[in-house]
């Protein structure tokens, strides 16, 4: 039997559109990305290992991971509350809040970066309240966390909204009839049902935080070992024409991104399977 790549369809244009899709994808994304991996093969293992375990690089990983993780955690908690009120309640200004949630997607990162820095620096609106009581936000790890919280919020809210919308009120009623109180209903019925969506949102926000550059670079102060994130380290290696060093760090970051992407895909297919099975369990 002759092998047919595509199954029969009455519509035309598969060859043209599929061919163009693969061509353009290769040209813009795959070949340039491959260049990065090939470049990394030109390093010896020793060179590679020394670069990526340099004390300054390790400090930047630790900072980037911690800040992205805490920011994603803050977003998971507050993003849940925001998604909840948007799905469940009617109140004045709801449409405005719903639209505002997408601001971090729409506002260029450099703009949010300089705005946040201005607010949280010594003379800024919030900085002048926090600084006298001993909380330094701008030019400290706390500032990086604030910037990453700003960037990650829409991911959690937008992942949770459809899941909360799909929740059957009858299940909550059943829980209540069986004697559950508000809190029990929340963590035994609602939370397990929306968990895949919550985790997806968390992972998306975390992944975005790891790679973020524009909004962080202004507020972080960029002190080596203290407030230098990994993305910035790649740029400073590039500025010193240390392409090998930049490549090594970039490859590590890229592999972490790919693992996270895989994880997010798995979470989403878990979610889809549960939805398609017709129930929340």
């Amino acid at each position: 039997m002759k092998f047919k790549f595509k199954k029969y369809s009455p519509l035309p244009g598969f060859g043209l559109t599929f061919g163009y899709t693969i061509f353009y994808l290769s040209l813009i994304v795959l070949i340039p990305l491959a260049a990065l991996f090939f470049k990394s093969f030109s390093l010896t293992w020793h060179q590679f290992w020394d670069t990526v375990t340099d004390i300054r690089v390790l400090a930047s990983y630790k900072l980037t991971f911690m800040a992205a993780f805490i920011a994603a955690l803050i977003n998971a908690v507050f993003g849940f509350i925001v998604a909840w009120i948007l799905v469940r309640y009617q109140f004045p200004g709801k449409k405005f809040i719903d639209a505002l949630v997408d601001l971090p997607f729409a506002l260029p990162t450099a703009v949010s970066g300089i705005a946040l820095t201005t607010i949280y620096s010594k003379n800024g609106w919030i900085g002048q309240i926090l600084e006298p009581i001993g909380i330094k936000t701008a030019f400290s790890p706390l500032g990086i966390m604030i910037a990453l919280t700003f960037i990650g919020l829409p991911f959690v809210v937008r992942s949770l909204q459809p899941a909360l919308d799909d929740l059957d009120l009858e299940v909550e009623e059943a829980a209540a009839c069986l004697g559950a109180n508000c809190w029990q209903t929340f963590y035994k019925v609602i939370l397990p049902a929306v968990l895949p969506s919550l985790l997806t949102g968390f992972a998306l926000a975390f992944a975005r935080g790891l790679g973020e550059y524009g909004s962080v670079v202004f507020i972080s102060g960029n002190m080596p070992l203290k407030t230098e994130i990994t993305s910035l380290l790649i740029i400073s290696k590039l500025e010193q024409y240390d392409y090998a060093g930049a490549t090594a760090i970039a490859v590590v970051m890229l592999i972490i991104s790919f693992v996270l992407l895989l994880l997010i895909n798995l979470l989403q297919s878990w979610n889809n399977r549960r939805v398609n099975n017709g129930g929340v369990n």
């Binding site: 340039p32 993305s231 590039l238 392409y243 790919f258």
Partner: peptide, 19 residues
Amino acid sequence: LIDLPFAISPVISGFIFVL
């Protein structure tokens, strides 16, 4: 694969073209 550029840090996205 089409979604891939969203998963990649912007700095790395620029860097691959420099390479």
